[in-house]
Design a protein around this nucleic acid. Structure first.
Lengths: 157, 157
DNA sequence: TTTTTTGCAAAACCTTTGCAGTTGG
DNA sequence: CCAACTGCAAAGGTTTTGCAAAAAA
């Protein structure tokens, strides 16, 4: 219902490629955007806007949270960034990958497992056949218990 | 991570049964709770706390939203009510069913399809085998495009 | 210089909490 | 009567919006 217009995901290998994409789309390269992209390259999993803002510019100054959301939205429109909603709590942002990714979020320990969308195709296919429903796990991921937490619970019921 | 202690779902056929469950659990039967349960019986799908509050008491007075959340939480602890988080937007509440239900939420038209948890067991089984991940679709449902919306998009790509 | 982007302030939205007053049992 | 429940007010967490000042091209 609230789906924005996004270009297909663009995978970039480094900051300079990201800047090129940004420029090509008519966007400008400001210190905050540079900082945001750097922070995204530095993080290994999806991170909140708050965390990204906190990592701040090269000058050490934290980014304004409103500008951060606006910038992330722009980066997302351009295809450089994607975000997911994991349970309660804030949305989490990550650089786009060449192949669309989907997520499994553990509601006990918070760990997020990512997997190429292709891996879940049999699941999507099954739901498609059963309900005629076209699932997307990339924006609202699969929630449950990860292997570790499920194992722990099974061992101690 | 934020999982509250809930008794197993209790399916009740009518208001009186619901009251009995409430009383048995040490809870009281107030006008707001009566109104809430009536509204839940009257609605055919999951509804927001806001909508439930708006339907008000027999006297026509709307319920306070804070009390509504508190009451719903209580009804949920007792097992009479469950709630799901559908995409953005508020949580949606419904009476519990004897069999646990899971939901498919269309992110285009907002339609919510419910299905007995059992129906999705093959899907859970597949994800369990592939990732060792124990999925639950009952609190954070499956999001995507329903048959109607997926069809419309396929016809006009 | 022109247009985009930022920062700050304020608001919107959903939900929770504190507290004093009311009410069901 | 007394514990449970309500209403009101206020706050908390996340995200958005308005607007004037700053900065990229």
């Amino acid at each position: 219902m609230t789906t924005r217009a996004h270009r297909p995901p663009v995978h970039v290998a480094d900051l300079d490629e990201a800047f090129a994409v940004l420029r090509r789309s008519g966007g400008r390269i400001s210190a905050p955007r540079r900082a945001l992209l750097e922070a995204l390259f530095a993080s290994d999993g999806p991170v909140s806007a708050e965390e990204l803002a906190a990592s701040g510019t090269a000058g050490g100054r934290a980014l304004d949270i409103a500008s951060t959301y606006r910038s992330l939205e722009h980066l997302e429109e351009v295809g450089l960034v994607r975000h997911v909603h994991v349970g309660h709590g804030p949305g989490l942002y990550a650089l786009a990958t060449s192949e669309e990714h989907e997520y499994l979020a553990c509601e006990r320990c918070g760990r997020i497992t990512s997997t190429p969308a292709r891996t879940l195709e049999p699941v999507r296919e099954r739901i498609r056949r059963t309900f005629g429903f076209e699932v997307s796990f990339s924006h609202f991921p699969i929630v449950g218990l990860c292997d570790r937490c499920a194992g722990a619970r099974a061992a101690r019921p």
